[in-house]
Design a protein around this nucleic acid. Structure first.
Lengths: 150, 150
DNA sequence: TATTGTTATACTCTATAACTATA
DNA sequence: TATAGTTATAGAGTATAACAATA
């Protein structure tokens, strides 16, 4: 396992990454802020989905998810259909307009990244994406209880 | 260069990393929120520093930096000395208390990372830290003007 | 009684603009 | 006139708590 020092450095770099995410956010269309793009992306990847599951995927509170979803629905980017199996619930799915908005947003950020990271070799981009994915997965997955030292 | 698709995926993973940073933030002491830790860390790395330079390093507006710095000064974690060369300016430096606060905060987040990433090999942590550093550097450094197609 | 989703309220972090005091 | 820093105000994103409808 890495040393305490190494983890501290990693943590610091992760905090520093917020500046990059902020920079990417500036490239987004005004009516599709990063949080909206994240919700669209999650729905697109998963297909029809419930609010509660969506909140779980995004790792944010359902109250927050609800507000983002309302924003998207106002723009006609998603549909909220009643769930025939549970009338408390709603099933969300992307509309054609929503799919277009998502693609547009993705194109914008990809362009910004391509411009700034033009000198990165392919494999570094791949490896980086993979590490980020593993980080998120390792964090958001439920963890076994920490072992006590008995 | 990587494809548009690869960059889009990278962007998505970077957005997803926000969830991890939020999770780490929950492990911070209540009077040392992540933003404060970031400022302490930057001052610690650079030694005595001016406000304007600090804002540049953190890539946030000076008005925001000013508020964070005021927060730290109230707690006795930094000192603000007048700059003998320019009386408009102030020189910031960590106090012993501030150094302690920083170390405490670093220990907390490192512990969280160590717990969640216990199965990561050393080299992955190193490589990941390096990639994050290169990303931030590639983004926050001034860029040459994009070439027009003439 | 518990759960799904919504709304009201508050907190953190950031940006823009107006201000002051020096340069 | 321009620059360093501060403060006031606004906006995006999140969390907690109270609520309505349904299970």
């Amino acid at each position: 396992m890495a040393t305490q020092q190494q983890f501290a450095e990693l943590a610091s770099q992760l905090r520093g990454t917020l500046a990059v995410v902020r920079e990417m956010a500036r490239a987004m269309p005004p009516d599709c802020p990063p949080a909206s793009a994240g919700v669209l992306s999650a729905i697109s990847r998963n297909g029809e989905i419930r609010m509660s599951r969506l909140a779980e995927l995004l790792d944010i509170d359902m109250s927050v998810t609800s507000r983002h979803v309302a924003h998207l629905a106002e723009r006609g980017w998603i549909e909220r259909a009643p769930d025939p199996l549970d009338r408390r619930s709603r099933l969300l799915r992307l509309t054609a307009l929503g799919d277009l908005a998502l693609r547009t947003a993705q194109d914008h950020v990809a362009e910004v990244l391509a411009e700034r990271l033009s000198d990165w070799p392919d494999e570094d981009v791949e490896r980086f994406t993979d590490l980020l994915d593993r980080l998120r997965t390792g964090f958001c997955e439920p963890r076994p209880l920490p072992r006590t030292n008995t």
